[in-house]
Design a binder for these strands. Structure first.
Lengths: 241, 241
DNA sequence: TGTACATCAGTGAACGCGCGTTCACTGATGTAC
DNA sequence: TGTACATCAGTGAACGCGCGTTCACTGATGTAC
């Protein structure tokens, strides 16, 4: 009512947005190259600016890092949600599991610097602010959606690999609240196998991206796919043989 | 024959060995504190020496890093082999699996700096030399020994979670050579489930050490134990229920 | 047992470097009247 | 449509810092005779 329409952005605003993106792009390029640390001066040099000019766009190095981290989670989250939405049919839960799982791996291989930033060891001297939490939670939720949907639709077998219900009440409560956060039913029996599977998936991607498979497994796509398959069975997404 | 006995080490040699250890100790302390990067000057300062004195012990920063990495793998490998050897009976394969698995986690929590060094993201500007490969392989072999023993003793059930044999010949060959390296029979059916389980175990430890469980799972020992249990079932170490 | 020489740990100054951040400035773009 | 002022991007110099590494040196420890 008060605002007719978003006003056409001024030239200045448009250029500013472009520069901000360019800075982030160059910063990522540097992080990817030779695994170097992030240096504002190096970024500025690469863009043909003086180092202090970066401060017109980011108030400090840490804020730039935060922006990169949030972008990373968002980019991965988008890719996963796209893959989930694009899996042929919404009720093809197993297909969605594979689609989303493979997307994590492909995204990580295509964006190793972002991946290291969000799933690697903490950066010396940097402390992530709270803003990074919601985008981070999104990726786990995206992986779990097909499992939650399958369970809600009664399409999930019971896993025989899962240990019997825990006797640890606090742990049980933690599982329940994780279930709620991730879109599972509060008393979901699938939440624990799913969290376990997710841990495995990220572990497998870690191994590949950080070179732990070098000189051992070269058929990495096959390797990863077979693990996804095994996890699908463990969760109960596949029909009993 | 030529040497009677190892000659009593001279004072100098003993002091030198002690100093070398002290440098590594202090370096690790710095790596652990606030996740800082490794600085020779900081280490020297902490030891009350001038920075150039470090060069009497390590020819460069990278060589010090290499020494720390090798020590890390060795320390973890020792801990795992101890745990394996100490599990009550050599044929108690499941008990050995739990003992060794929990040892990885406990070691990682007790030595977060070493853990990040060997299983975290690569260090900017550092390239690990070949000397680090054998100590690294040892830990995986230590985790696998109980599985290989169980299989050799005919005590391993077939896993129902494992996908059917691969049709990818190169992948099959890679599995066979991994089997040999890790002390499994060349045509072991357990090698693939084991590698998969190992990926999961390291993934779980990564999540905990790097803070991915914060604000989600506090009952971490329970969480980890249940995953080990599930993996034991998946591998076939537990009797069919 | 004592002397002469070689080895080696540690010093302190210096080199050349890159870093994050601040600050007063210039000149172009945007806004109000 | 034109003028006056405010906003803001980018400059260039400077601050203070820490880093890895080299080098000629001193003085203590070890070795050979």
């Amino acid at each position: 009512m008060s605002a007719e329409k978003a006003p056409a952005p001024s030239i200045r605003a448009r250029v500013r947005a472009e520069m901000t993106e360019e800075i982030k792009r160059v910063a990522l390029k540097h992080l990817a190259q030779d695994g170097s640390a992030l240096s504002l001066r190096a970024v500025a040099r690469d863009m043909g600016m003086v180092s202090s000019a970066i401060y017109r766009y980011f108030p400090s190095r840490d804020e730039l890092l935060t922006a990169l981290i949030i972008d990373g989670y968002t980019s991965l989250g988008d890719a996963m949600e796209d893959a989930d939405g694009n899996a042929e049919r919404r009720d093809a839960h197993l297909a969605r599991w594979f689609a989303v799982g493979h997307t994590i791996r492909k995204w990580a291989l295509a964006h190793p610097a972002e991946y290291a930033l969000i799933y690697g060891s903490p950066i010396p001297g940097y402390h992530a602010p709270m803003d990074t939490v919601p985008p981070a939670a999104r990726t786990l939720a995206a992986l779990g959606r097909c499992v939650a949907d399958a369970e809600a639709a009664g399409k999930l077998r019971d896993s025989d690999a899962t240990p019997p219900p825990t006797e640890n009440a606090e742990y049980a409560a933690e599982l329940r609240s994780a279930a709620v956060v991730l879109g599972f039913a509060e008393d979901s029996r699938a939440i624990e196998p799913f969290l376990s599977a997710a841990t495995h998936v990220y572990g497998a991607v870690n191994f590949e991206v950080f070179g732990r498979l070098n000189n051992a497994i070269d058929q990495r796509s096959e390797w990863f796919d077979r693990q996804l398959r095994q996890l699908a069975t463990m969760i109960g997404l596949t029909p009993r043989p």
